[in-house]
Computed example of a mutant assay.
Amino acid sequence: MPIPLLIDTDTAADDCFALLVGLLDPRADLLAITMVAGNVGFDQQVDNAFLTVGLAGRLGEVPVHLGARDPLVRPWLSASDVHGDGVGGLKRPDDGHAPSDEDAVDAMIRLAKEHKGELSIVAIGPLTNIALAVQKDPEFVANVGSLYVMGGSINARGNITPAAEYNIYVDPEAADIVFSAGFADVVVISWDPLTITDAVFDQERIDRIAALDTTLSRFFVRANQATFDFDSRVGIGGSSHCDSLTALLALDRSLATAESRYRLEVETEGTRTRGATVFDWQSDDNNVTAIEKVDGERFFDYMLTLLGTEPAA
């Protein structure tokens, strides 16, 4: 039976590819896409989401809900220096589709209640919407089946500051609320070491994707170019694909080859360490499972197959 899925996203580049996983993998029953302030301007993120849904041939089937346009207490911080507009300059067609009238947080709460204990939420942006749902509905935490979070680094380097990964840094207060809320199953996909070890596509991999010459592979190469260029300049060796990896892990946990339980705390006050994630391996009060290693070749092969398909118009 397909997994009831909700993807909470700040749609740009790899977020788009994560949406393709949710939209096209038959193991996923993607019930909603919820938008949260993150990578690029909010309205651009919404256009990017609809563009992706359209490329997957799913317009009108999966609703897009608008959520928080700002972090809980801090000004929004863009990552457009990394992603550009998130889709390589592509413009969303005038398709006539509009976001749902239902707020993202309300949709999240409703779907968790309707699919109590079964809904998997894939959070691949700042955790603002999730924190607002925790605060609004006392039953929300218990209703969610699993929460997959792309965020943080396991006591390692960040990608927006030396200490912090972008999604956590943008809204550390929200992250603190979420990780302290008591969700039964929180799975963390970290930036370092996991993403930059097992989820990087170098030029040879990008060339193999380009050679597919499908609608989706052409979209991937173009939308991914700014991220590839940035990540390559800072020494990563190719583009990083933590968001699509997170979406796939929500459907197929067997991709993970190593994971551990930790007590995860978020630094909200530090002058130089705002947004840092402290993974305590000695705690007896663990609150997350951190994926520490995945089968990177299998992940790439999955994406190659996904991007090689031509969705029905």
Rank of each mutant, 00 (worst) to 15 (best):
A68K: 01
P71R: 05
P71C: 02
P71V: 07
V73H: 15
V73D: 15
R74G: 09
P75E: 14
L77V: 12
L77S: 10
S78G: 04
A79E: 12
S80V: 15
H83L: 11
G84R: 06
G84I: 06
D85C: 06
D85H: 10
G86P: 04
V87M: 05
V87R: 08
V87D: 01
V87T: 09
G88T: 04
G89M: 04
G89P: 02
G89R: 00
G89H: 09
G89W: 01
L90K: 12
L90N: 08
P93I: 13
P93D: 07
G96R: 08
H97N: 13
A98Y: 15
D101M: 14
E102N: 14
E102I: 12
V105G: 00
D106S: 14
A107W: 08
A107N: 09
A107M: 11
M108N: 04
I109D: 11
R110W: 03
L111F: 06
A112G: 00
A112D: 02
K113D: 13
K113M: 09
H115S: 02
K116E: 12
G117Y: 03
E118C: 08
S120M: 10
I121D: 00
I121Q: 03
V122P: 00
V122A: 01
A123N: 05
P126T: 08
L127V: 06
T128N: 02
I130T: 11
A131K: 00
A133P: 04
D137K: 09
P138Q: 11
P138K: 13
E139V: 08
F140R: 05
